[in-house]
Every structure is written in structure tokens, then in C-alpha cells.
């Protein structure tokens, strides 16, 4: 079994490292890490009174109660309406604004500084203004989601459109393609990978916006559920709700990443 090849240096120390090179080894490492993570959580938790950090098992059982009673699914569904409508608006408005920003010089000069600025500031600060204007409404929450996410779509779309290789547009022009046709058949497809990166980042921000909107402009969603549980000093269910949102976020982000990879396959070498 001993190979004729020279042994790797410091072979004994590297045995664990070489596990990471095999598929099964990676799986084993990941499972071990997960078990360790849950173990630490379990050990750190204290279920003696409601106000302490709960154990893993208690959090799971409380989570299951919330699911079974239908409270969590319903509130999550209501909350997600905000995300869905908000993100739809982000895409429908953000992508065209990004394209115009890239193609029209004056627009770029006016819009871009504001966008850079919007990305840098904590958007949550203007929530009281939105609340004063729109009240504790669905529209107010959707507005929050849109404001959190839209700068990222606009900026990334504009950058992606601007970075399209000018040789490709020149090629299209030389074959007599109209401006519209060049935009549709050359510029937009070429910009898709960059746009998707922006959409992925924007989704992360929209999720934050959704949670912030729920917690500040409380409606019938998870915001009211959390407020109610907080009022009764029940940490475990609040943690269970928070974990549900985070897991939903991870799933949605993975989905967008998967779409991004599929659409951007041609750009990989």
C-alpha cells in the first residue's frame, strides 16, 4: 500500500487536513462541526427560567409548537408578503434605473452620488419619517424593504452595463443592429452576471429591511408575534422565530446564488 511516491512532508500532521480533500471527508467534518455547534448550544442553554438563553432541544420543541399551532407559518406568510412585493418593486424599478444610469451621462452624474450615499448610511434612521408619512401600514413596510435594497440593484446594474466590452457593441453596430436591438441582444445578456450579483446583495438587504420593518412598523406579521412573546418574557420562542427567519434567509440566498451560477455559466472560464 505504501506508494513509491515520496511521502508528503509532515505526513502525520496532515492526515486530518487531507480529509478535507475528499467528499466523504468533508461531509464528516461538516457533521462533526454541526454536532459540536449543537452540543455547545445545548450546554450553554439554561431552561430553568424563561428569561435565560434556552437549550437547543427546548428551542426546537418550542419551534415545533409554534409551527404546529399554525402561528409561525401564518405570521411568516404575512411578513413575506412585504418582502415579495418590496423586492418585486426593487427589481422592476432598480434594473431600468440602473440601465439608464449607465447609458445616460447626465443621469449618472446626478444619481450616482446619491446612491453611494444611500449605501453608506443606516437606512433604519428614516423609519420614523416613513411611519409618519404612511402610518403603521403594509405600504410603509414595503417602502422600508425597497429603500433598504434598491441602491444595490441600481449600482450593480449600472456597473455591469457600463463594463460590457465595447468591442461587442461595436460588432453589433457594424452588422447594422439598432440601439434597442443592441441593448436587448448584446448589452443586457452581457450584463446579467453583474446584475445578478447586485440582486443577490439586494436580497440580503431586503431581508434585513423586512425584519426591521416588522420590528418597528408592527403589523400582523412576525413583528407582533415577537412583541407579544417579548412582553411575556419568553426567550425560547423568540429565538425560534429568529432562527426561522435566518434559515429562510439562507434558503432564499442560496436559491438566488444558484440562479446566479446558472445564468452566469458562460462567463466562467
Amino acid at each position: 500500500m505504501v506508494a513509491a511516491r515520496p511521502a508528503r512532508p509532515r505526513a502525520p500532521r496532515w492526515r486530518l487536513e487531507s480529509m478535507a480533500d475528499r467528499r466523504l471527508g468533508r461531509l464528516a467534518i461538516r457533521i462533526a462541526a454541526l454536532v459540536l455547534f449543537i452540543g455547545i448550544w445545548q450546554a450553554a442553554g439554561d431552561d430553568s427560567i424563561n428569561l435565560l438563553f434556552p437549550t437547543f432541544t427546548r428551542t426546537v420543541s418550542v419551534w415545533w409548537d409554534l409551527v404546529e399551532s399554525g402561528v409561525l407559518p401564518i405570521t411568516l406568510l404575512i411578513t413575506n408578503q412585504t418582502l415579495f412585493v418590496g423586492f418585486l418593486i426593487v427589481l422592476v424599478l432598480g434594473i431600468p434605473i440602473g440601465i439608464f444610469t449607465a447609458r445616460i451621462k447626465l443621469m449618472d452624474k446626478i444619481v450616482s452620488p446619491y446612491l453611494t450615499f444611500l449605501v453608506a448610511i443606516p437606512m433604519i434612521a428614516i423609519i420614523p419619517v416613513i411611519q409618519a408619512l404612511l402610518g403603521l401600514t403594509f405600504a410603509a413596510r414595503v417602502t422600508v424593504v425597497v429603500l433598504f435594497a434598491i441602491p444595490y440593484v441600481v449600482i450593480n446594474t449600472a456597473v455591469a452595463v457600463r463594463r460590457v466590452d465595447p468591442v461587442l457593441t461595436e460588432m453589433a453596430f457594424s452588422f447594422g443592429a439598432s440601439r434597442l436591438m443592441t441593448l436587448r441582444d448584446v448589452v443586457l445578456p452581457a450584463a446579467v452576471p453583474g446584475m445578478m450579483a447586485g440582486i443577490r446583495i439586494a436580497l440580503g438587504q431586503a431581508l434585513i429591511g423586512m425584519v426591521v420593518a416588522e420590528l418597528t412598523i408592527v403589523g400582523a406579521g412576525i413583528g407582533s408575534l415577537i412583541a407579544d412573546l417579548q412582553g411575556r418574557f419568553r426567550v425560547a420562542p423568540v429565538l425560534a422565530v429568529a432562527c426561522s427567519i435566518v434559515i429562510e434567509g439562507i434558503i432564499l440566498m442560496s436559491l438566488v446564488e444558484w440562479i446566479e451560477r446558472r445564468l452566469g455559466r458562460w462567463s466562467k472560464q
Binding site: 438563553f53 425584519v211 417579548q230 423568540v238 429568529a242 434567509g249
Partner: peptide, 15 residues
Amino acid sequence: LSAPLIAFVPVFLMI
């Protein structure tokens, strides 16, 4: 990096 960890703020607040 990308999940809405802000959802944990109510938990932080209680603990």
C-alpha cells in the same frame, strides 16, 4: 455574511 442576523436583536435584547 448574508442572512438577516438582525432578527436576533430581540433575542439579544431579552438576554
